[in-house]
Structures are given as C-alpha cells and as structure tokens.
Design a protein around this nucleic acid. Sequence first.
DNA 1: AATAAAACTTAACGCGCGTAAAAAAATAAT
DNA 2: ATTATTTTTTTACGCGCGTTAAGTTTTATT
Lengths: 343, 343
Amino acid sequence: MKQPKIKNMEEFAKVSGISRPTLSKFFNDASSVRKSTREKVEMALEKYDYQPNVFAINQNRKLTKNVGIVVPYLADPFFAEIARRIETLVIAEGFRPILLSSHGDPALEIENLTSLKAIKPAGVLIAPLGRVSDKDALESFCKEVPTVNFDANIEDVGEAFVGHNNAQATQIMIDYLTRSGEPPVFFEMRTPPNPNANKRRIAYIENMERLGLTPHVVQVEGEGWDLEEIGYHGGKRAISGHQLATNTVFCSNDRLAIGFLSAAYELGVRVGIGADCELRVAGHDNHPISHFTCPTLTTVSHDYTSIAKSSVETIMALTESKERGRPRETTLFDGNLILRTSS
Amino acid sequence: MKQPKIKNMEEFAKVSGISRPTLSKFFNDASSVRKSTREKVEMALEKYDYQPNVFAINQNRKLTKNVGIVVPYLADPFFAEIARRIETLVIAEGFRPILLSSHGDPALEIENLTSLKAIKPAGVLIAPLGRVSDKDALESFCKEVPTVNFDANIEDVGEAFVGHNNAQATQIMIDYLTRSGEPPVFFEMRTPPNPNANKRRIAYIENMERLGLTPHVVQVEGEGWDLEEIGYHGGKRAISGHQLATNTVFCSNDRLAIGFLSAAYELGVRVGIGADCELRVAGHDNHPISHFTCPTLTTVSHDYTSIAKSSVETIMALTESKERGRPRETTLFDGNLILRTSS
DNA sequence: AATAAAACTTAACGCGCGTAAAAAAATAAT
DNA sequence: ATTATTTTTTTACGCGCGTTAAGTTTTATT
C-alpha cells in the first residue's frame, strides 16, 4: 500500500530529497539525470503515489509527447488493424497516441485536425478520407503540424507519404489471373471514397493493354463506406445482367469482393477454380475476413504492418530533426499474391 | 481570411471588447452570458483566430470535459461500431471523447485507465476485457472516476451496467430453431474472452431444459480475439468429427459463426434452410458481415445503438448529479430475431 | 422614474510545472 | 591534491486560464 497521495512536484521534491528542477528533468527524460539520482527518484515513486499533472506539463511546452492518428473510418477492420499497429509503435517510442476517426465525414475530419491542433501534438499521422477531403484545410494543417500522410495519397499533404504499391499489386494479380484462366474484368465503385481505387483502375487498364487485352471495367453505384453492401448490389446486377465480359472478376478491394461473393452465392453461381465453377473472383487488400469467405478469397496483400512501421518511423524522424519543408518523399510497399480458392 | 492569431484570452479580451472573466464564463458555457455579450464574442471569433488553451483550462479544474471510452478490441467491428456511436453522442453532449482500445491485453487495459485518470475525465465508459481483466484494478479505478460499465458486465465495476439481454436473445433464437427444425447444438469457445458467452451458454442450457430437450454444448479450443479463425478450426473439427448431435448449430456469436460457415463450405456441407441442406447455422450479435456470409446468417440482433445511447445518458446523468455510490443499476436491451437464410 | 436584480469589469491571486541563472556540490580528469 | 567538468540546488519568473471580491453598468421590475 502506497503512502498518501502527493499533490504536486514540490511535495514530491520534499519526500524524495530531490529538488524540483531535477525532478522536472527526470520526468522529461529519465536518462538525463545521474544514475544515483534516478534511483532515488524511482525509490520514492515506489513509495509515494505521484504522477505529474499532464496539463501543467504541456502548458509550457510548445510540442507535447502526443501523436495524433486520424483514420477515415474506424469501423473498417483494415483501418482498425493499421491503427492498432501504429498505436503500439507510438507507445513504444514513448509517445501518447490519440486515435481519431473521421467516420467518413469530411467535416469531422477537419474537426479532428482542429482538436488535435489544440493539444499541440509532436506529429500527426493521417489517412485522409480521399475524394471528399477538404484538401485546402488539410494542407494548411500540415503547415502548422508535422504530418505524415498514409494509405490515401493526397498530393502535397504532409511531409511524406507511406502507402501501398497499387500498381505493382494490381500487376501481379493480373499476371496471375491471365496466366491461369480468362483475363479479368475490373469491378469497382463509380465514385470510390478512397484514391487507391483510381490507382488500381489505371493500373488494371495499363496492364491489360500491355498484355494486348481489352480492359473491361464494371462500375457500380453507391456512396460511402458500406462497401460490402455496394459490392453485393452491384454484383447481383452485374451477374444477372450479364455485364461480365469474362468469367473472371478482379474486385477493387476485398470488401467489395465479400459483397460480390455473397451475391454470387445467392444467385447460385459457383465461384472458384474447380471444374464445376462458373466464375473466378479476386480481391485486393487481404482483409481479415477474406480468409473466411465462401470460397476463400484470392487476393493481394496490403502490407499494413510495414506501412504502420514506416509511418511511425517517418513521423519520429520528423519530430526529432525538426527540419520541415524537405521534398515530400513517397514510400510504397509491395503486395504479395495470396492464392486461395476463389480464383 | 482571419486576422493574425491571438495568443491568449487576455489579447482576445482586448480585441473583442469583453473582459477576460466573462470570456472565461463564455467558453465554459456560452449560455451563461447575456445574449448581446455572446453575440459580441461570436463576432470576434469569426474575425480572429483564437481558441483557449486546453491545457491551461484543465489545469485548474478538477473535472474536465473529457469522457474516456475504453473498449477491449477495436479491430472487432462490433466494438468499432459501438464506439463510433458513443463518440458521436458524447460530442453532441459537448464533451470530448477519448477512445482507447485494450487490444485484448489486460495490462494495456489498466494502462489505459491510468492514462485516463491523468486527464481527469468527467466520466468513463468501459467495456472490459472480461475474464482476463484485473478486477481489483478496475474496481479501484471506479472509486476515483465516475464509470459506466457496458457490454461485458463485471460485478461491482462502475456505477451502472448497460448491456445486451443475453437471456432473452438466446431464448427467442432457441424458440425459433426448435419450432422450425431440430433443436440446436450450442457452439462456443471453451475459454471465451467475453462474459456474455457464459450468459449465453447458461441461457441455452436453461431453455433447452425448459423445453424438455437435451442440451449439447460443443466447446472449441483457442485463445484471444481471432474468433473467425477459432470458429473455422473448431467448426472443421466438429463437422468432420461428427460432434454435432443435431443438424442445427447455434453459435455463441456471429464471428464464430462466420468461421464455422467457412469450414462447412470448405467441407462441402451445404448450410441453410433449403431441402438440399444438411446443416442449419445461427449466430448472435448481428455483426455487420453477417449480412454477407454464404448463406446469409440468421442471428439475434445486439442493439448497440440503444446500448450506446443509454450508456452515454447514464454517464452524463452521473457527472451532472455527482452523487456517487447509489445502488448499481443494470439496463439490458433485448435482441430481435434476424431471419436470413442460414437457419 | 426609482429600485432591485442580473451581468459585467477591474484587479489580483493561484494552479503545477517549465525553465533560466547563479551558486553549490559531486564526480572526473590531470 | 588540484583543477576542470558535470550535475544538482536555490531562487525566481512565466505560462494561460480559473476564480474570487469589490465596484460598475446594464437590464428587469414595480
């Protein structure tokens, strides 16, 4: 059982026998004080219940130990997973992650940045909404706070971009699909929220042309982040309306593919690589659920572990070096083919 | 374009023509000042770029406008969704939500509470990990901070509990399943992380006995929060090992059911209510993906909209009234049968 | 118009900690 | 042992806002 609580650093200085300025140094960086001093403080911390007042600490600092993380839609397991990894890495660096989701709403995205600015973060990692983001507001935020842009690349936003190599990932899937069967039709939303979708469509068309094949793009209607729902309705329409030029469908992302598979199942269309199958379906991202679809989804992995790691490293380097305005660097991580049973 | 930035309230008092103490009142509660004053301030806010320093504000207050939200595993869309609703409601009440995930780790759960304590929150909403939670640490936290316990009920934790009526929800599903076909086998984890699972098993057994039927519980191995994975492996084993006493399986939750369905598909076992189907499967929670499984999953809804709303209302009432130590109230929300095609 | 009540202004102190400067003490180097 | 260097202590001020008390102005009531 610990002794009665210590109100403030002054009191803790008394009971620990260490002066307040030295304690202040200690709490900022324990390694900046002499070893014997550090031990004395730590012994006192064992004995007394004291922790410095966060608000008083941060009031007099221009940069805090906070790191903001903004994601477009936390209910999407993809962002939940990447956020989880980022959080863990940020904590390991001795910083405090503040996780905010924009819930698909551009106004909330800006609000999130405003409220982050208020807590004077050392840096911010942002995966923007994309198409609907208020680009000017993002840019002006990035001028004030060191920012790393990840996942959805928005030009000139942030000091660096870390993301997925959509071109490479699309290519390896197209190469696989064309070698193993009919060339793929590309299945996507007409107005995708996320700019990665556009990169994937462009890469699809380029690669099909490179192979001397005719690209076929099926664009389905729908707004927002209910991608399975959109994939389901679009899939039903595409299948029953015979809009698919070949027997192979490459979905712009796994969540659309999940909806598409559900539509195919409902329509009694057998999907897979078996002799009795009518359709092959592939996805993109290696979504956690893609292991468990029926059939299991062949997809291209999205290396979020590396993206998380690199994003955190970049923001840490940025906050330490403090030099701003360097040319914006772009880091992309390749995808790997995940062969399962759907194609 | 706004005028040059205002450093502090003193400066803003000068340019707005309102004295600092009145401004302080205004920022605490805009309705506490005269209308004409409020308008003057708002006009100045339009013109000048000023927002009070969060750290200075909170330093002198014992209770802030922060509300902590702690969930066990944010990468589970169920918690992501409920967190999203809670966040939105908390913002609507004029408070600032601080969302933290324990990532399945009891140590992190306690760390989260410790770091919340440091920011002096007005209240905290916690969905505990459950079985692995450090109950003593939770309880001692709740003595210091007004807390509402939601989702996973841990006795004596928090001033109130808001959650799902597992008994009622289990009952309506069992009633449906027994009326429409063979009685269900209960499929669950041997060591579920979440205490709701235990309530569901108990309700299953009670209801089966009430109906004069023999309960059959299949408990599968596996630790942690990868429920689809666990359901998949357990499902494969249960099906191929002929462990299912009837042709109807009631999974403890939808995520297990998703894995189970995947196993059945892989084994070529047709699931559904059609004449050609060998197995019926039901879930529990109405997980977002349960709309899109193959076949679509019959399940019992988990009313997280109401749970979120009630939790926020309860914590708000608590922070306002300030009276602590009242008898712990429990609020449960019923589930509804969601009939789809799997059973 | 006179009075009462409410809202505001002025002045001043305190919160807990960061931080700077000068002096003192502890450690390291010669 | 003496000097140089590093670390700690003492002292003191500042950060931006909450808050209180006394005095003043504005609004509401009669």
